[in-house]
Amino acid sequence: MTPHPRYRELVETGFAAANFIGDLGIRATDCGPGWVEAELDILPRHLQQNGFIHAGVQATLADHSAGAAAATLVAEGQTVLTLEFKLNLLRPARGQRLLCRAEVLKAGRQVSVVEAEVFSLQDGEKCLFSKATVTMAVVPIP
């Protein structure tokens, strides 16, 4: 697929315009055609009752990053909406910052499939907490 001509602007605008994403504190850190990286500084409000980072926080980080990655490969006048996603929680998530990298596996004219990993860096090592597979519908911008 050909990258969107303004993919970086599209990603930045998509993160800035999503109120829920801003409320959580998720921000894009880098992007390119077919991929996006994002991060979230963990606060007490992101934790569940046992002190681990809530699965919903991880799901939101993965889903929004996946959508942004897919959006880098759509044509002018199109956007993406999540059709379905599956999140595998691999271990209890802890740490001061979550990182996410989303990469498009298959970019199509009507449907794209994206994989997103949520992790932290602990002692310089990547600790993977969850992995999502996200199916995105490519739709016209209303």
Rank of each mutant, 00 (worst) to 15 (best):
Q49P: 10
I42L: 11
I53P: 09
T60Q: 05
A70Y: 04
L61Q: 02
G51V: 05
L47A: 12
A55P: 06
H64I: 14
G51R: 13
D63V: 09
Q49R: 14
D41W: 03
Q48H: 15
A59Q: 09
L73N: 10
V74Y: 03
L61G: 11
A70C: 03
T72D: 11
G51M: 05
A70Q: 13
A69L: 00
A69C: 04
E39D: 12
D63F: 05
G67S: 12
L61D: 08
Q58T: 02
A62Q: 02
G67A: 13
D63R: 07
H46A: 09
L73Y: 07
R45Y: 01
I53M: 11
L73I: 02
R45F: 13
F52R: 02
A75C: 07
V74L: 11
A59G: 15
I53F: 01
I42W: 07
L47K: 06
H54R: 11
S65D: 06
S65Y: 03
I42M: 05
N50P: 01
N50F: 14
A69K: 00
S65V: 03
Q48V: 09
E39P: 08
E39R: 10
V57T: 12
D41L: 08
N50Q: 15
A66D: 05
L47S: 08
F52V: 04
S65E: 03
